[in-house]
Amino acid sequence: GRPPQPKSVEDLLDRINLKEHMPTFLFNGYEDLDTFKLLEEEDLDELNIRDPEHRAVLLTAVELLQEYDSN
Rank of each mutant, 00 (worst) to 15 (best):
G1I: 13
G1K: 14
G1V: 12
R2T: 10
R2A: 07
R2M: 08
R2S: 08
P3H: 12
P3S: 12
P3L: 12
P4M: 14
P4W: 13
P4R: 10
P4L: 12
P4K: 11
P4N: 14
P4S: 12
Q5G: 04
Q5K: 10
Q5S: 09
Q5F: 14
P6L: 08
P6Q: 04
P6H: 05
P6M: 10
P6C: 07
K7Q: 11
S8H: 01
S8K: 03
S8R: 02
S8L: 02
S8V: 00
V9R: 00
V9H: 01
V9C: 01
V9I: 10
E10R: 04
E10M: 08
E10V: 08
E10N: 06
D11R: 00
D11A: 05
D11Q: 09
D11I: 00
D11W: 03
L12Q: 05
L13P: 04
L13V: 00
D14M: 09
D14S: 11
D14T: 12
D14W: 01
D14H: 08
R15C: 09
R15D: 08
R15T: 11
R15H: 09
R15V: 08
R15G: 09
I16C: 12
N17F: 04
N17G: 14
N17E: 09
N17I: 02
L18C: 06
L18F: 00
L18R: 00
L18K: 03
K19M: 12
K19H: 10
K19E: 08
K19L: 14
E20H: 07
M22H: 09
M22P: 00
M22D: 04
M22T: 13
P23I: 08
P23G: 13
P23C: 11
P23L: 12
T24S: 07
T24L: 09
F25C: 04
F25K: 03
F25P: 01
F25R: 01
L26M: 12
L26S: 09
L26D: 05
F27P: 05
F27Q: 15
N28Y: 10
N28H: 14
N28E: 05
G29F: 00
G29T: 01
G29Y: 01
G29H: 02
G29N: 03
G29S: 02
Y30K: 01
Y30N: 02
E31N: 14
E31T: 15
D32A: 06
D32T: 14
D32Y: 03
D32M: 05
L33H: 03
L33R: 00
L33F: 04
D34K: 09
T35S: 14
T35G: 08
T35P: 01
F36S: 04
F36R: 03
F36G: 05
K37D: 03
K37C: 08
L38A: 12
L38D: 11
L38R: 12
L38T: 15
L39W: 00
L39C: 04
L39D: 03
E40G: 14
E40H: 11
E40S: 15
E40C: 15
E40I: 08
E40T: 15
E40W: 00
E41A: 12
E41C: 07
E41I: 06
E41F: 00
E42Q: 12
E42I: 07
E42L: 06
E42V: 09
D43C: 04
D43P: 00
L44D: 02
L44E: 03
L44K: 04
D45L: 11
D45T: 08
D45Y: 07
D45K: 11
L47P: 03
N48R: 09
I49K: 02
I49C: 04
R50D: 12
R50W: 13
D51T: 07
D51A: 05
D51P: 01
P52H: 07
P52N: 06
P52W: 03
P52G: 04
P52A: 09
E53K: 11
R55P: 01
R55Y: 00
A56E: 14
A56Q: 14
A56F: 05
A56L: 09
V57M: 14
V57C: 14
V57Y: 06
L59D: 06
L59G: 07
T60L: 06
T60D: 15
T60R: 15
A61F: 03
A61R: 01
A61N: 07
V62R: 09
V62I: 11
V62M: 05
V62F: 01
V62L: 05
E63Q: 12
E63W: 03
E63R: 14
E63S: 13
L64H: 15
L64Y: 12
L64C: 13
L65H: 02
L65D: 07
L65Q: 04
L65T: 03
L65R: 02
Q66F: 04
Q66E: 05
Q66K: 15
E67A: 12
E67R: 11
Y68A: 15
Y68T: 13
Y68R: 14
Y68N: 14
D69Y: 05
D69P: 12
D69M: 02
D69K: 09
D69N: 09
S70P: 12
N71I: 11
N71P: 13
N71S: 13
N71F: 11
